[in-house]
Design a protein around this nucleic acid. Sequence first.
RNA 1: GGCGGCGUAGCUCAGUUGGUUAGAGCAUGGGAUUCAUAAGCCCAGGGUCGGUGGUUCGAAUCCACCCGCCGCUACCA
Length: 672
Amino acid sequence: MPRKMLVTSALPYANGPIHIGHLVEYLQTDIWVRFQKAMGNDCRYFCADDTHGTPIMIRAKSEGITPEELIGRMQEEHTRDFAGFGIEFDNFYTTHSDENRQFSEMIYSRAKEKGSIVKKQIQQSYDEQEKMWLPDRYIKGTCPRCKSPDQYGDSCDSCGAHYQTTELIDPVSTVSGNPPVLRESTHHFFRLSDYEDALKELFSQGYVQDSVQNKLDEWFDAGLKDWDISRDGPYFGFKIPGEEDKYFYVWVDAPIGYMASIKNYCDKHGLDFDQVWNGGEYEIYHFIGKDIMYFHALFWPALLFSANLRTPDKLFVHGFLTVNGQKMSKTKGTFIMASTYLKHLDPQCLRYYYASKLNADVGDIDLSFEDFVNRVNSDLVGKLANLASRSGPMLTKKLDGMLGTLDAEGKALLDELTGAKQEIIEGYESLNYAAAIRRIAALADVCNKYVENHQPWTTIKTDAEGTRTTLTAILNAVKVLTIYLKPVLPEFAAKIEQFLSINPLTFADVQSTLENHKINDFVRLIERIEKEKVEAMVEESKEQTLSQQTEEAEMQPKLAEPLEPECTFEDFMKADLRIARVAAASAVEGADKLLQLELDLGGITKNVFAGIAKAYKPEDLVGRLVMCVANLKPRKMRFGISEGMVCAAGPGGEEIFLLSPDSGAQPGQRVH
RNA sequence: GGCGGCGUAGCUCAGUUGGUUAGAGCAUGGGAUUCAUAAGCCCAGGGUCGGUGGUUCGAAUCCACCCGCCGCUACCA
């Protein structure tokens, strides 16, 4: 009886591109799904873009587009990146969908009926200029503990201190640059503690790995707190039904997005969603990173309990990616986008490498470039691909491409390979891909020794049929190894299927043998990695960081003329600004930009040459009030002495705009 | 700070419920070959299992403390 299963990966946030860190999870999941499919199970893989929240809203605004345009573009990019790595979703949807809105509203209203939604007054920072509420992340200031400047609102990167946003010294909104103010607002909270018993029951059934369980116990011991599930507008998300200007916090509708993606798929494929999700026929699994355990282990099942919906069977939690033993770094060029990788290297190499390191632990996995190149070149190319390459062409070139039959030794070799089937299946099933890959690589060693012992390149000279028997054993071995590797290397497997002239392989084909069968010409399966390509990829990643920084700098609201260095009040007061009436104005002969003005400062007059002739006619100026710098040191000009300046805005030329006081001001009054 | 995870050869990692001289692959050195994508085969060197102390007939494995790295710490997603 084939198993039925629904599998998800965490929803990538539609605020940025997919990078090689994300790919750990999507490849882990994709390999598992492909494995299940190859086992003949009915396994479907779902995901979606996570599209709501403040960062999306702000980014769209800074790019001058709507959030819908932004998430549409990100969805295209994400879809392309995933496809490039052979990650095959059954449905990749979006949280900004009708299905998701309906589910979110439904779950909320059911939780509310149960009395699990409570309202509380909270204080939150508010940006008065942008008219928006500010999450801690959008407030920066000086750390109250170590006085490091430019730290985020919740914690200090420099000394690690955690504090309230209100404790920051000189806090500013990163959106407008103004100091935030504190405002009161009513928020909706989900009473997580209502579901403590149900959650504990769920965990007792093995919802998570043991090491994750320890972390959860810690949270239980600390006591479950109410979860703030609302945000005030403006917010890009779903409105809370029956409320004014209240929205669901993005983390409410993100996991619900799993359901929405599945619902969307069901509707397209004539399946009854309610039956699929709640019917108990399907196993449900979520693959997530350790950073979002809290949401998936507590809030998500609790929300489902509150809505009387079925909870998933298991959470598979993985660690993060480090590169060369350290966190991915933009300046080191190890923050590598999926699209950048694809420009330089074969996606199969990364699939193989990750698989060779992944296990069911939550520990981080390391991508060491040196190890990456060595492992792919020696194991994948040197042992596995080479095994096919040293046997296939000999058969097609010298023995008409016709497989013979297996002798006792060939059968013994195949028995050894097929004997590992269960172990490899268990490796995949239990997410211990590293063990499966180790086993497969060891089998490839056995096969290469077999080739060495039988020396087909020697026997071909004297014993054609004996050689055919040897090659038949080796190519059958290649077939078995290909089945084992297929979840990891679908493209590699497809080439071998084509070369061996057989139908797509599944685990059921491990025991069958190919005898007296015509094969096709050999095609190269995979290329070795050249170190230079890895280096080029790193270099390009560094450049992207630079250009991105420039772009971000340009995105900041910027002045055509940069601000002058700070001046004190005393500095400012040195400039004596006065209201003046233009008593007379005339063009200056020999100067096309200058007008000569006679300014009446209410008793004294000043003669001023102003460079405003392109923008104003003398006759239009006479009689109007302007602002002038009255104590400017007189300056001798070619046409006479200028005793002041009129104040005007604009870059110059025809774009000059004189300042005028509101009516009531009198010539001679000082401007403060 | 509190809590969780991790620390095993130059590199990347295995080490089942504590049991004989601690393993693999890569890298390094040597050898015999040449069918193959300079691949494959044989041999060798290399580790006081992060540190200290303890439990035990016996500890990489269990306990305590310490050091280092990573993460979480609930309004960033």
